[in-house]
């Protein structure tokens, strides 16, 4: 197992380096970060020169890449191009915000989806099953930005009708969130709508997966054996059916989670949440490769780690799978 992990990490390192070079090249050649400056009247020539020297903008791309690597390793990913501000503090801040949002959304989605999937499978073709199937299709078909906007509009309409602000519709916290517990509650309050939006698509996917997996297991021979042994139905379902049915879902969740940590751009934009997705989009918009690369490195590492976690977990849960 250890050998397997090490080998995977080595391959991943190669992938990471390759990805970093490609992305750096694309961002660099896609546009001139000084474009806006150059056509703005009265911009000081000396200042523009300073920037060009500081960020080696007159050098060819491979040299600039090398400079970036140096900066990334020795100077915590370096500083932004125009304003020369350190990147890492901002990145940590947005990372934490995204983590909060995504973690809560995923956990809730899993809990609900597993419940729905199991119950649907056990009560196949019932009213519950059909309505959950419909809900899943709707959830998958609904565009995220539309759902987010509809929720905001709904909340505002409620406010206009009753004077009650049931949920805040933007940002991470209110003007005076308070300290300690009050801050936490305020933050949770602000995350309710974004979490709902994120959950919908995930619940739809996960519950379908869970249902399919559960159906397959529930009709299997070993479940019949378990019943034949005289086990109570609840025990049969939980110990024999449910645990086995959960395995493919665990893999899916682990893989999905890695990607989510790169940020959920649309949700973050509509709700103005200070997260990784928004950070990336803004950085890209300024054609500044440094923050984009920093974001990429973190996101790629997360994805690689979680891919590995998915594989290892699968191996742990299913003894038929062995890694050498």
């Amino acid at each position: 197992m250890l050998q397997y992990v090490i080998r995977r990490l080595l391959y991943s390192a190669v992938v990471l380096v390759l990805a970093s070079f490609l992305v750096f090249m694309f961002v660099t050649v896609s546009g001139d970060p000084l474009a806006a400056l150059k056509i703005t009247p009265n911009v000081s020539e000396e200042t523009v020169q300073n920037i060009i020297e500081r960020k080696h903008l007159d050098e060819p791309v491979p040299v600039r890449y090398y400079e970036w690597v140096k900066d990334a390793l020795t100077n915590k990913f370096g500083t932004t191009l125009l304003t020369d501000e350190p990147i890492l503090p901002d990145l940590w801040r947005v990372m934490k915000n995204t983590l909060q949002l995504v973690l809560v959304a995923e956990l809730l989605a899993i809990l609900i989806a597993v419940g729905i999937g199991v119950y649907s499978a056990l009560r196949q073709y019932s009213v519950f099953d059909y309505s959950m199937t419909t809900f899943s299709f709707l959830g998958l078909a609904t565009p995220v930005f539309w759902l987010a906007l509809m929720l905001q509009v709904a909340v505002v309409q409620i406010y206009l009708a009753t004077g009650r602000n049931v949920f805040p519709i933007a940002n991470l916290n209110s003007v005076d969130p308070g300290e300690g517990l009050s801050f936490v509650i305020d933050r949770a309050h602000h995350l309710v709508l974004p979490v709902i939006v994120l959950m919908v698509a995930n619940i739809a996917t996960y519950s379908r997966y869970m249902r399919a997996s559960m159906l397959e297991v529930v009709n299997s021979d070993y479940v019949r054996t378990a019943r034949a042994k005289g086990l109570a139905e609840s025990r049969v379902t939980m110990k024999h059916a449910f645990r086995n049915a959960l395995i493919p879902l665990v893999t899916l969740v682990a893989l999905n989670f890695g990607t989510l940590l790169g940020g959920v751009v649309v949700t973050e934009t509509v709700f103005s949440l200070d997260g990784m997705g928004l950070y990336f989009v803004n950085a890209l918009g300024t054609n500044d490769p440094y923050p984009v690369m920093a974001w990429l490195m973190i996101t790629a590492t997360m994805i690689i780690i979680f891919n590995l976690v998915a594989d290892i977990t699968y191996g742990l849960l299913d003894p038929r799978v062995r890694y050498d």
Binding site: Y159, N165, V166, V192
Partner: peptide, 29 residues
């Protein structure tokens, strides 16, 4: 079985409800 898999669902509803009831009960605009 039915009870076991509904428990998480109930738990979730409780969490969400507390988030709504708690702050909304005290907050104005």
């Amino acid at each position: 079985m039915r009870k076991r898999s509904l428990l998480p669902l109930i738990g979730v509803v409780a969490i969400v409800a507390s988030l709504v009831v708690g702050p909304a009960a005290t907050a104005g605009p």
